[in-house]
Design a protein around this nucleic acid. Sequence first.
RNA 1: UCCUGGAUAGCUCAGUCGGUAGAGCAGCUGGCUGUUAACCAGCGGGCCGGGGGUUCAAGUCCCUCUCCAGGAGCCA
Length: 481
Amino acid sequence: MTPTIARLLQMPPSADPVEVQAWVRTKRSSKNVVFIALNDGSTMRNLQAVVNLDDGTITEADLAEVTTGAAVRLKGNLIPSPGSEQAVELKTCAVHVLGPADPEAYPLQPKKHSFEFLREKAHLRFRTNVFGAVFRMRHAMTYAIHTFFHERGFYNIHTPIVTASDCEGAGAMFRVSTLDPKAPPLLPDGSIDWSQDFFGRSTNLTVSGQLEAELAAMALGKVYTFGPTFRAENSNTSRHAAEFWMIEPEVAFADLNDNADLAEEFLKFLVKWALDHCKDDLEFLNKRFEEEEKTKKQEERSEFNLLDKLRFVLDNKFERLTYTEAIEILKNSPPNKKKKFQYPVDRWGIDLQSEHERYLVEKHFKKPTILTDYPKEIKAFYMRLNEDGKTVRAMDVLAPGIGEIIGGSQREERYEVLKRKCEEMKVPTESIWWYLEIRRFGTAVHSGFGLGFERFLMFVTGIGNIRDVQPFPRTPKSAEF
RNA sequence: UCCUGGAUAGCUCAGUCGGUAGAGCAGCUGGCUGUUAACCAGCGGGCCGGGGGUUCAAGUCCCUCUCCAGGAGCCA
């Protein structure tokens, strides 16, 4: 294999011949000299190839097909660059076009394109600076996540993608079926006979690996899942996708405080990793973020740029408070008193709206905030009931600019209490009998949380739309690529 | 799903009171002794999202559908 551009840019100038294979970003020419900016995805930075036309080794005809988007192989040697943008450049002695790109038809230009346009060109958008940076960082964060858990003795568990449990309480699911949609087998009452389907029952794509992860935690101690999840909700926002990846640690013998400690340590580890390992990409994204902010109205601009925000998260302890305390703060807050909230905060028990969470995180505390101990009515059946009988050991981690980035809880480990709550909340237990039964044999306090991977990527890259941190986003009415 | 705003050249957008289509960038051609989104000059480029209606006449007004964006809800 030829060396990557990332490697070449770190090599000292030398008379030794080198070969590079990459895609052309731009070509600039004057009478006797041509500059070709090359990128191979290995780094944000381009390699500048210089072609001298005056000695006749390479002619203008040789460069006719060297146009934006073309794949090329160049031979030459590295020399010190007189230009200010790079330390070395490639003095080129041979040019070979591997795959031309018709300049009349190639959609990407050496200029800034809108995200909306690039979403329609998802097959080509990897070749832009932004998406190169985003997907290199997506990889770096994936690696960091596995590293974090591995170093702390967690085991990665692959929970099923096809599941029969439809009571995970996280919205509509995608059905998985091999039955003939035009003529499915019917029961005498006219309903579909799922017993004749592939799995002998009705199945769906998973909305969470948590329930299964809990089973593994009750034997392996500390586990985490990292896989795709699916929601068939008709959500049309910049923060929702029908297919997304979730990280769900689950820890035996850990209570909610341990859980919150883990969540905070985890987020800080990932942010530090990004700052330490993704310098070029982050600096580029930071510049882009600042330019984006300039186009916004004064009151909508964020106080921090991307890099400052990340360092701030790293340097400050997350705020922790209970739902009850949060309600008191919100009740007495200026926007509530001035009736600026669309949903007024008037009593204990209401569900917090985005505007309330944003006020707490962005205006009141101005840092990531962990809210705990919510009213049981507004949280899932599996969360552990507190001694007061009114609240559960839930926690939401709220991040500035994103909102809820982590949702978790201490799980209800008491068989009788869990059974009673399932009945109260009308959770059908037939398909999750195993989830209850694990509580009958060596049950123990345990906790876990879910981090939306793309939500985190939005936070760490400063990209405002979830569709731009996924290579091939699936959203309502959209699955082109 | 709801609210708001959009869809005009390859891209980003302008288009007045309803009167038959415009700019910048990109592309192509030429010029220029080292550029960094190079620069300078010239040239080509349009089913004005689809359908229906009003009108002598619709990019422009009305209805409708599709898709897109932002916000809300749901959540991660």
